[in-house]
Structures are given as C-alpha cells and as structure tokens.
Design a binder for these strands. Structure first.
Lengths: 262, 262
DNA sequence: GGGCCTAATCTGTGATCACAAAGGACTGTA
DNA sequence: TACAGTCCTTTGTGATCACAGATTAGGCCC
C-alpha cells in the first residue's frame, strides 16, 4: 500500500521541463491516478472519496485534493454537486466529440511531425511498430496499450510542440478508460499495422497530408467503433478491467479488490 | 482588498454543470486570477508568490495553492524548479504553436456551430457583432476584449460541445495576456467586422466550411501579427497593461500598484 | 409494512502549523 | 573592489485540525 498503489509509475511528459521529474507527492498521486485511469483500473461511474485514495496511497488529504482537482479540471474525473468524485460515464455524444477533437489535434501533430522528423526518429518509430506486432501475439492487453501509446506519443513528440502535446495528453486521459473496449475484436483487424506502416512511409516522404490522413483514419475508426457500442440511451457500457486478453476471471480482481476495499 | 481583487468576477463556463456556479474559495481565486490574466493585469515574466496572492485576496494558502496548481496545469502560469510561479514569457514559436492549435479547434467549433445554430442564436450573434462596432468608437480596450470574447464563445457555444469548449478556454487563457498587443493598431483594420459579418452569413447558410475558414483566417491574422512582434531572440515584448486606449500613464497604475504591493 | 423525520456519520473545504530547501543579505578575506 | 561563505528570511509542501453540509441509517408514526 504505497504511493504506487494504482500505478506502474510512468510519469507524464507534462510541464516542469524535460529533466525536472517533479517529486512532489501531489504529482505522484496525480501520476498514480492517471495511470490507473488509462489502464482501465477504474470502472466508469465508480465513486471515489479523497480519504479513500489518501488511505490507499498512504498520504494525507492535501496532495490528493490537489491531484484530484487537476484531474477534475482536465475532465478525467467528475466532481458532482453532491460532494462526490467519480469516473465520468461516457455517452456516444461525448465519444464522438472527443473523436473529432482528437482527429483535429493529433492530425495536426502528425502533419507537423512529418515535416520535422529525421531519419533516426523514423527508425525509432518503425522499431515500436514492429514491437507492437510482435507483442500482440502474446495477447497481453496492458502491454499492447502501452505500446500503442508509445507509438502515438513518439510520433507526436517529433512535432516538437509542447503545448499541443499537453492538450493531446489531456484528451487521451479522457478517452483512456474506454479504450479497453477495443479488445479483442477491434485490434484484431488489420487496419492498425497497415495504418502504422502508412504513417512511417508518410514520414519518410515528408508527406504531411498523408500522415494527417492516416492518423485521422486511425482515430476515426477506433472511436467510431467505441461510439457504436452505446446503448439506446447513448450510454456506453462498462469497460472491462485491464488484463491479459482472455483471462476474464483473473482480470477482474484488481477492480474488484478496489471496490471491495472501498 | 477582497476576493475580487484582480477580478471583475466573470466566472468561466468550465465544469460543474450549467447551473452550479461553484462558490468554493478555490474557484473564486481561480476565476480571479484567470480574469486578471486575460485582461492583461499581469506582466509576462512577473513572479508571484502564494502568500502574496493569498494576502491580496484575503484567503489562506490552501485555496490559492489549488487554484494556482490548476492554472499551472493549464499552462497559464509556469512553476519553475526554483520555487517560484510566474506568468509565462511567450516566444514566437509558442505563439505560432498556439495559433495552429486554435485554428484547428476553433475552426472545428465554428464548423459545428454552423450546422447546429438556429435563427435565434444567429440573431444573438449579430447583436454582439453590432455591439462590438458601436463600442469600439469609445476606444475602451477592456470592453472591446470582453465583447470579442463574448462573440467567439457565443459562437463556439452553439456547437454544443462542452469538452471542446473547455479546451478552447484553456487556450485563450494562454494567449490572453498577449492579446493586448493587438491594440490599437491591429484592431483598427477592417478585417474584424468584415470577418464577423462573413461568419454570420455562413451560419445563416449553414455553410460549415465557410464558418471554419473565416475563424481560421481571423486567428491566423491576429496571432501571426503578434508573432511578428517578437525580437531577434524570439521573445515577445511585454503586453501593455489593460486600460482605455491612449491613456498610457493611467493605464499602468493597475500593474504598477500590483508590483509595488508585492 | 411503508413512508417520513431525525440523528449520527461521512465528506469536502478552508485554516493553521511544521518543515526543508532555496534566496538573499551580510560579513570577512584577498 | 570583487568574491565566497554563512546566517537569516522567505517560500512551497505536506499534515492536521475544525467545520458545514450532505448522506445515510435507524426509528417513529400512520
């Protein structure tokens, strides 16, 4: 029960200069919750209390309040008028809104990356793309999502646009809990590897328009797929807890335990 | 010396459901600082301390910390490793990055607004556009900026995309302190009124592409103008403190007094 | 047995206290 | 006069305390 309770501790690239690595408790709590959110360890709609998180992480209320305040501001959590913090429940409309925003911004980042990338960076991106295909044989959902994230943010990082990167991170934080819905059906389609190959080709050719188009297609397909999972009320069913694909029983333990402890 | 010290208290539309109007001190401090920032009452590069703000606003450190934490997360302030919070100094590269992001996002919002706006909303927008022209004769920079903001966010609000609106607000917060540089030269050009008329026509015709194009042009011109004010190092000179256009001596008092009090 | 009222508990918010690290001033030396 | 070392002050961070409002559970009345 330490500060890494919900967290594999992969800090975000947000703020505080490259080499800073802020060590404040507030930031550690923030990273922990962020990680838990993007790996699907919280169930949408789940209610949380400041004191519970503080207890689980072994810190006082102060850093938890600041971390949650920031996450609420970013839309990763919702603070309801009736004094409770919960993981937002996604509707079809909200998914489609996020889809359009992400297409615009990540398309922009990809276009700029295509103009700025050098040969070494393209090689690095190709390495990641190959690793995705290789790792996917093992059907490890957590590793796959980490790889996908790495591919995208490595690409966007090439654009060298810190503000843009920060906004995109905020958007991934909001769509994060629902990306589990892409497994295993969606990811088994051949669009992904094909799209990544196309992106790499676009970078080599310095073809900004092509890079943008490929990223837009990727996001469009993925989030439209998620949007179509909505029920008649527009609500989207719970994301499955993160785990190796297929291990459904064991998969639930993390979140179950979480709920139980609460 | 109250909570409204830096603030005309125009709360943002962020979060907390439409009718909530969060009354927490933290939010009041946030709104106060936000308002001060967007009306140019802080000088870029200016250093601030938590205790000073708390003292000026008559609150304890706690709500100030939370408000500033959020503003730092949004990029409205910078927290330096050496324990100090300051208003970011803008570079040409950063302005152009913000320009491209805003063009993409506000263009998207305008396009969606064009498809969703009804007749009453278009009439409201036209009213605001006329008010801008009328008020501009009085050369009141503060009022003009408030009007411009109202025009844009009324337009974007028609798109009915809360997440998009929130992201755009965050971007305005970052460009805010520098929009004073548009006065009086830039705003005296005829692009503005002409562009707003074009937007209204686009809404009437439900022409999403035209609405997008007009907004993109507007942002492009304004922020490219600001970017061209950068010196050889890429730094952009201080924004002039907000005041009625032309009253330069009186204009400085707000910020002067602020610096003095510090 | 079911609905409503009340009291105990829980929860977020704000203030205050304690502390370590950074900044700045002051002094002594070369 | 320039510079480095030391001490004191300032400043952000985290923990703890106090409190008001919301939630909930239990009991009472019909």
């Amino acid at each position: 029960m330490g500060i890494n309770e919900f967290c594999d501790h992969k800090p975000s690239v947000l703020g505080y200069g490259a080499a800073m690595s802020d060590t404040s408790l507030r930031t550690q709590v923030y990273d922990s919750l962020r990680q838990a959110l993007t790996t699907g360890r919280f169930v949408p709609g789940q209610k949380l209390t400041f004191r519970f998180i503080a207890g689980a992480l072994g810190v006082s209320l102060t850093p938890v309040r600041e971390a949650l305040g920031r996450l609420v501001a970013e839309g990763a959590f919702e603070m309801q008028p009736n004094r409770s913090v919960r993981v937002p429940v996604m509707t079809r409309a909200r998914i489609m809104e996020l889809r359009d925003i992400r297409m615009a911004l990540e398309g922009l980042a990809a276009a700029k990356a295509a103009l700025a990338a050098d040969r070494r960076q393209v090689a690095e991106l190709r390495r990641i793309a190959l690793a995705i295909v290789a790792a996917r044989r093992q059907a490890d959902r957590v590793a796959d999502r980490r790889n996908i994230r790495e591919f995208h943010f490595t690409l966007y990082g090439m654009a060298d646009q810190p503000t843009l990167l920060r906004v995109i991170e905020g958007l991934w934080l909001q769509t994060g809990p629902y990306m589990n819905l892409l497994y295993p059906d969606f990811v088994s389609r051949p669009h992904g590897p094909q799209g990544r190959a196309n992106i790499i080709r676009a970078l080599q050719a310095r073809d900004a328009a092509a890079a943008r188009r490929e990223i837009e297609n990727d996001i469009d397909r993925a989030l439209s797929y998620v949007a179509d999972l909505a029920d008649d009320d527009g609500n989207i069913a719970l994301a499955e807890p993160t785990a190796a694909v297929g291990r459904r029983r064991g998969a639930a333990t993390a979140v179950q335990h979480f709920n139980y402890a609460q």
